[in-house]
Amino acid sequence: MNGLLYFGTLGIYFLGTIAYLAYLVKPRPQLGSAARWIVFAGFLVHAAFTLARYFEAGRTPITNLHESLSFFSLTIVGVFIIFDRKYRISILGSFVTPIALLLMAASMLFPMSINPLNPALKSNWLVIHTVVAFLGYANFTIAFGAGIMYLIQERFLKQKKLGAMYQKLPSLDKLDDINYRSLTFGFPLLTFAIISGAIWAETAWGTYWSWDPKETWSLITWFVYAALLHGRLTTGWRGRKAAILAIAGFFVMLFTFLGVNLLLTGLHSYK
C-alpha cells in the first residue's frame, strides 16, 4: 500500500511536471488548469502516503533522508498550492513542481526502511522543529522559483525578446512581490525552527548550541535571508538583486539540508 502511494505520487508529479513545462512553452490555457489538477491530485496522494507512514512508524516520518526528502517535496507542493490559490500564479508551478519531483526521485536513492528512533530524540519537538523547518524551506523554494522567473522575464524585457514565454510569465513587480512574500513567511519559520531546535537540543543533549555543522549552516542560511530582507526593507534591494539573493539563499539552504547530512558528520547526520 505504501509503495503504491509512493510510486503513485512520483508518477503523478512526473505527469504534473510535464504538463507544467508544456504549459510554459505552449500557449494553451487548458494545459495550465490540467497541470494544476494533476499536481493537486499528486499532493493528496502524497499526503496519504505521508499519513500512512506516520501510522506505520508511530511518529512523523521525517527521521531519515528518504522520509525527509519526501516530506520536503510534500511541503513544497503544499505551499505552492497555497501561493497559487492566493496569488493566481500557476506558471510558478513550471518552476517549482520540477523541484518537488526531483526531491521525490532523489528519495528513491535512500532506503525506505523505518529505523528505530534514537530515544534521546523522542519528543514533541521532533514534529515542531522539523515541520517548521521544512515549511520554511518550502517558502524559500517558492522564492527561488520566483527569482528564476524574475531573471528570465527581466532578460526578455531587457533584450526585447517578447515571445510566448514572455507572454506567459507574470510581471516583474508581481514576481518580486512573490519573492518578498515567500521570504516574509519563510524567514520567521526558519527563525522559529532554529530556536525550537536549540530548545530541543537543550532537553536532548543538554546544550542549546554546540556548533554542530547543521547548526552552523542553518545560521549561515539565516544570515543570507536576513541580509536579503534587511536590504529590501532599508536600501530597497528589489528586482534583480533580490532575485539573485533568493536563488543563492536556496542553494545555501539546500546545502544545509542535504550537503551537511551527506558530506559532513555531526549530530544531525541521519541517513
Binding site: R28, P29, Q153, L157, Y166, Q167, S171, L172, D173, K174
Partner: peptide, 27 residues
C-alpha cells in the same frame, strides 16, 4: 478568445507601450 491568443496582444504602438508597462509594473 480563451483558446487562441487572437486578441491577446497589442496592435498599436501606444497599446504595446501600455502592455509592456503591465509586464514591468503589474498594477
Amino acid at each position: 478568445r480563451t483558446e487562441t491568443r487572437i486578441a491577446s496582444s497589442a496592435v498599436s504602438v501606444a497599446f504595446a507601450a501600455v502592455e509592456l508597462a503591465r509586464k514591468i509594473f503589474d498594477d
